Amino acid sequence: MNFDFSILISNPLINVGVISWAVAQLLKTIIHMFSHGEFKKERLSGAGGMPSSHSAVTCSVLLTSYLLYGFDSPIFAMAFILALIVMYDATGVRWAAGLHAKAINYIVEYLGDENAQNEVQLKEMIPKLNESLGHRMIEVVCGAMLGFAIALIGHFFF
Rank of each mutant, 00 (worst) to 15 (best):
M1D: 13
L8A: 08
I9E: 07
I9F: 15
S10R: 12
S10K: 12
P12Y: 00
L13C: 01
I14A: 06
I19F: 03
W21T: 09
A22D: 03
A22S: 09
V23I: 10
V23M: 02
L27G: 12
T29E: 00
T29I: 04
H32R: 09
M33Y: 03
F34A: 03
G37V: 01
G37H: 04
G37F: 10
K41H: 15
S45H: 13
S45G: 15
G48D: 00
H54D: 00
H54P: 06
S55L: 00
T58A: 11
S60L: 03
V61E: 05
T64E: 08
Y66A: 09
L67T: 05
L68V: 08
F71A: 10
D72T: 12
D72A: 11
D72M: 09
D72R: 06
I75C: 01
M78I: 13
F80M: 05
A83M: 10
V86T: 05
Y88N: 06
D89L: 01
T91C: 13
G92L: 01
V93W: 08
V93Q: 03
V93D: 01
R94A: 06
A96M: 09
A96I: 08
A97R: 03
G98Y: 09
L99G: 07
H100G: 12
H100V: 14
K102E: 14
I104V: 14
N105C: 06
N105L: 10
Y106E: 13
I107E: 12
V108D: 01
V108P: 01
E109G: 06
L111Q: 05
E114N: 12
N115D: 15
A116H: 15
E119I: 08
V120G: 07
V120Y: 14
V120Q: 15
V120R: 15
K123H: 10
E124P: 05
P127Q: 11
K128Q: 12
K128N: 06
L129S: 04
L129V: 04
N130D: 13
S132P: 07
L133P: 07
H135A: 03
M137S: 14
I138C: 12
V140H: 07
V141Y: 00
V141Q: 01
C142Y: 07
G143I: 05
A144R: 00
A144K: 02
F148T: 14
A151N: 05
H155F: 13
F156L: 07
F156H: 04
F157G: 02
F157A: 09
F158I: 10
